[in-house]
């Protein structure tokens, strides 16, 4: 019987790679330094260009513009969520006509630029002025704010319907079958079994959709709504001071990053039962 009588000597550790300076690290340091310098230069410029009169004049306008942006996004996301439910139902329906109609709706709003949709509604509905006046809707569509709400809600509804559909289709069939075996009706199956699971899948896409909406809401400034971007453009056209745009960029970046981080926290909290 043979057995090992002496152990192999331990191998030397592999060469240390952690402290080594690689070309990638040097490029990285240079780039980070470049970002840092750019940030410092921007801050120095903003401090140097600080003008108390301009801040007093345009600061409150920026805040009111920010409020308009937030209002627009919140209303549109909520209205879009409501409209998306029948659209999603149509997309998943067995009925050919209904599903073709829903598909065409989604394809149109996802395949054309939002700015073209907004123009089609804001300027285009002017072609039907007499008809709209006859049914008393002209006062609604004369206003840029209402047109923006209308266009943005329809647009986000198309995207949200697809998010909802993807989430519902990701639920395994066994869940539907199990609910049926328990004798639950369709409404309760959907509300108690399918929706809670689908919402977790849909959480991240919904967050992305809200961020996309915040970014897209800047487009309303073109049809004379004074949101954050609209106030920025007005301030720039009066002062020709480039810092107006820089401040807008800071505002947008802060909102988007805040929302993104809130969403990460939310997602971690809502999916904690799925973690092992």
């Amino acid at each position: 019987m043979s057995h090992v009588t002496e152990l192999l000597p331990p191998a030397p550790p592999p060469p240390e790679t952690k402290g080594r300076v690689t070309p990638a690290k040097i490029i990285g340091w240079v780039l980070v330094a470049a970002w840092f310098l750019a940030g410092v230069a921007l801050a120095a410029w903003l401090i140097g260009a600080w003008d108390i009169d301009k801040i007093a004049l345009y600061g409150p306008k920026y805040l009111s513009g920010l409020w308009v942006t937030i209002e627009l996004v919140v209303i549109c996301i909520l209205l879009g969520a409501i409209i998306s439910i029948p659209v999603c139902y149509g997309r998943m329906s067995q009925n050919r006509v209904l599903s073709a109609f829903a598909y065409a709706y989604v394809y149109f709003f996802r395949g054309t630029p939002l700015i073209a949709q907004l123009f089609l509604i804001y300027y285009g509905f002017g072609s039907f002025r007499s008809e709209l006046e006859a049914i008393g809707l002209w006062t609604i569509f004369r206003d840029a704010w209402n047109c923006a709400l209308f266009a943005f809600s329809l647009n986000t509804a198309a995207y949200q319907a697809e998010i909802l559909r993807g989430a519902i289709e990701s639920i395994p069939r066994g869940q539907f079958e199990g609910a049926k075996a328990l004798g639950l009706n369709r409404f309760h199956t959907f509300r108690k079994i399918i929706l809670p699971q689908a919402m977790i899948v849909a959480l991240r896409p919904y967050g992305n959709e809200i961020i996309l909406m915040i970014k897209a809401s800047a487009i309303v400034s073109i049809v004379t709504v004074f949101d954050l971007m609209g106030e920025t453009r007005r301030a720039f056209s009066r002062t020709f001071d480039f810092q107006t745009y820089i401040w807008a960029a800071v505002f947008y970046l802060v909102i988007v990053e805040m929302l993104r981080n809130i969403w990460v926290v939310l997602e971690n909290r809502l999916t904690r039962h799925l973690k092992r």
Binding site: K215, S217, A218, I219, M229, T232, Y245, Y252
Partner: peptide, 11 residues
């Protein structure tokens, strides 16, 4: 990714 496209264009 965070800036609105419209703002990037103006910037």
């Amino acid at each position: 990714r965070g800036l609105p496209e419209l703002l990037t264009i103006f910037l």
